[in-house]
Design a protein around this nucleic acid. Structure first.
Length: 604
DNA sequence: CATTAGGTGAAG
DNA sequence: CTTCACAA
């Protein structure tokens, strides 16, 4: 499964010391002193650093097996005509992704085939249907996202002291350095006390480490010589114990088997995880790094799988790590500039990138649809935008259940015509407490018109996607000042709620009567009141809160109306200037008859 | 070799 | 703001 990554940008200055560089890999065998074990904040330089990469085996397939209560039977997950996941039993028949379904069935007649969940017209939620049709359905990966979240939660609960970085839907990096140091000092308390006769005080090397057997719960990646145990090995073995415990717990409680790699840094952890699969973990000792790394095709290394790796392969006409070791840093810098130091170090088993805990909520949320038959009419685009908007609304509102006050700062639309590059258009997304399908679809349609509307000719759009980006948890007071109001084709600040409601249009003018149960809207000249059930037994504070909610909802209503007026597009001739500024001749579809999916989704 | 439906982060 | 690169 793909991992989410960032390119190999340099973080800070390289500290590689030339020191004639007699040997590659010289950095792997530093002596560990009392200072090293007692100092807590060595970060990526910590000689006792231990990082793991743990990923779920054939994750989508495993999700379906658990959902269906299937065990140990060959199974593939289908997305339209393509196989997107193959469980391990099915792999024994030689089935892989990108096999044709017919081919896979031939290899294994009893193969179980599960199509991913889809949104289907007329259904409220994504589901698993007997018949799927890519012309009308849209894939939903939400089930996998939820299962992924369960696994991540078990990592966090099982390893409270560890730093955990979700790397993709089925992978996480775990930095064990802190919990391991703690356990190391608990098991070997003498390490905490520098002996009085220590020749160099804190900088005295630690006493000899105990013998540890890492093979109890892990595969130990072989080293050339049978090196003595080091303190880093002890650290690795403690981390391996912890990792193993959590993995077993996840397998027993959730049913997902995982594979993990443990090593001194992220890239080696990732590389080690694939040493043996499935349901297995592998440990790469420092002394084993050179031999493990040298024969590996460098393009398998994280960040070298793309253009940079290609460029390296082409430049030196080589393929393995070993092949690149003779290239000097200077030469590499000459050819590859800023990336050179990073590459140079990676080839020697050094990776200074940190395991960074990410926010629980994603920063973006994207719904996308490929059209096998390109769409040519603007109205088709609007149809799919509505479907995508419905999915985004469902997912965002769902995310809000666990994490209230989520607010996407921008809405982005992407479209691809034929085989051209994807183009996008974005605009600030208004704050509103209730994100509705209409709100998203209207804003999306507007962007759609800007993106493809002005181009002439038949459009032949082969992909449409809609995304929220910049999703954040709004701060307490932030909701009141932020929020945008679209006018004249631009979003502008839309002050909200009582303290800033100078021009909000819904001033709470305390008319006659109880100002804690009603307000009047200056925009539509209506008096809005709480219902009797909301006022009956409610305290003043409760009523005020309810009234504020009501006011905000009413404001959202006006906002949606305003956007709807602006966004209204002539479906048939979108190529003309049909988006009139300010909202000229508008008619039709004040509230179109709900069709398909959207009829069930929050139109509220 | 390739596809779909995602994500993140940086460059320009 | 928009595109690109990476991930398999």
């Amino acid at each position: 499964m793909a991992t989410n990554t960032s390119p190999p940008v340099l973080r800070g200055k390289s500290t590689w010391k030339g020191k004639e560089q007699e040997q590659d890999f010289e950095d792997l065998n530093s002596t560990i002193t009392y200072r090293h074990i007692l100092q807590q904040n060595l970060g990526v330089r910590d000689p006792l650093r231990v990082v793991a990469l743990c990923d779920s085996d054939a994750f989508y397939a495993a999700c379906e097996m658990i959902r269906l209560g299937v065990k140990d039977k060959p199974l593939v997950v289908l997305q339209w005509e393509g196989i997107i996941a193959v469980n391990y039993p099915a792999r024994e028949y030689g089935i892989t992704r990108f096999h044709k379904l017919a081919d896979a069935k031939e290899r294994c007649p009893e193969l179980m085939i599960v199509h991913v969940a889809t949104y289907k017209e007329g259904e409220a939620e994504p589901g698993y249907w007997d018949k799927v049709d890519s012309r009308t359905h849209k894939v939903s990966l939400d089930y996998y996202r939820r299962e992924s979240a369960k696994v991540l939660t078990m990592f966090k609960e099982g390893l409270p002291d560890a730093e955990i970085e979700k790397a993709s839907i089925d992978e996480a990096f775990i930095d064990f350095t802190k919990p391991v140091r703690k356990e190391l000092l608990r098991r070997y308390p003498h390490l905490a006390n520098v002996p009085h006769d220590a020749p160099n005080g804190l900088d005295t090397p630690l006493p000899a480490p105990p013998k540890v057997d890492m093979a109890l719960d892990s595969n130990v990646i072989p080293s050339e010589a049978d090196d003595d145990t080091t303190w880093h090995d002890v650290a690795l073995s403690i981390a391996a114990e912890m990792m193993h415990k959590v993995r077993v717990d996840i397998a027993s409680k959730l049913g997902y088997t995982t594979s993990a790699g443990l090593a001194r840094n992220k890239f080696l952890a990732k590389l080690s995880a694939s040493y043996k699969k499935p349901y297995s973990q592998s440990v790469l000792r420092n002394c084993a790094i050179p031999n493990y790394l040298k024969p590996i095709p460098f393009q398998k290394i994280r960040f070298l799988g793309g253009k940079l790796g290609d460029a390296l392969a082409k430049e030196y006409d080589v393929s393995t790590v070993q092949d690149l070791l003779p290239v000097t840093l200077e030469e590499m810098q000459h050819k590859f500039g800023e990336n050179a130091i990073w590459v140079y170090e990676i080839l020697r088993g050094i990776d200074r990138s940190e395991v960074k805990e990410k926010s629980i909520v994603n920063k973006s949320m994207l719904a996308s649809k490929n059209l096998q038959k390109p769409i040519t009419k603007a109205s088709d685009g609007q149809h799919w935008i509505r479907v995508l908007a419905a999915e985004l609304a469902l997912r965002l509102n769902d995310a809000c259940k666990a994490n209230p006050n989520l607010w996407p700062k921008t809405l982005v639309i992407h479209a691809r015509r034929g085989y051209e590059v994807t183009r996008s258009k974005q605009a600030p997304f208004p704050f509103s407490r209730e994100v509705t399908v209409d709100l998203i679809a209207n804003a999306g349609n507007k962007l759609w018109a800007e993106l493809v509307g002005k181009d002439s000719g038949p459009m032949k759009v082969t992909n449409v996607s809609l995304a929220f980006t910049g999703i954040e948890v709004a701060e307490e007071g932030q909701q009141n000042i932020d929020g945008f109001f679209r006018a004249d084709g631009q979003f502008s600040k839309r002050p909200r709620e009582s303290e800033t409601d100078g021009d909000s249009g819904t001033n709470a003018e305390p008319l006659e009567g109880d100002c804690t149960t009603s307000f009047s809207c200056s925009k539509c000249r209506r008096k809005i009141s709480l219902s009797p059930t909301q006022t009956l037994g409610a305290s003043l504070e409760e009523k005020n809160r309810a009234l504020n909610n009501l006011r905000a909802e009413h404001e959202d209503f006006h906002f949606a109306q305003a956007v709807a007026r602006e966004v209204e597009v002539e479906p048939e001739d979108i190529t003309e200037k049909s988006v009139s500024p300010g909202g000229g001749k508008k008619r039709k579809r004040k509230d179109p008859a709900p069709v398909g999916i959207e009829k069930f989704f929050s139109r509220r």
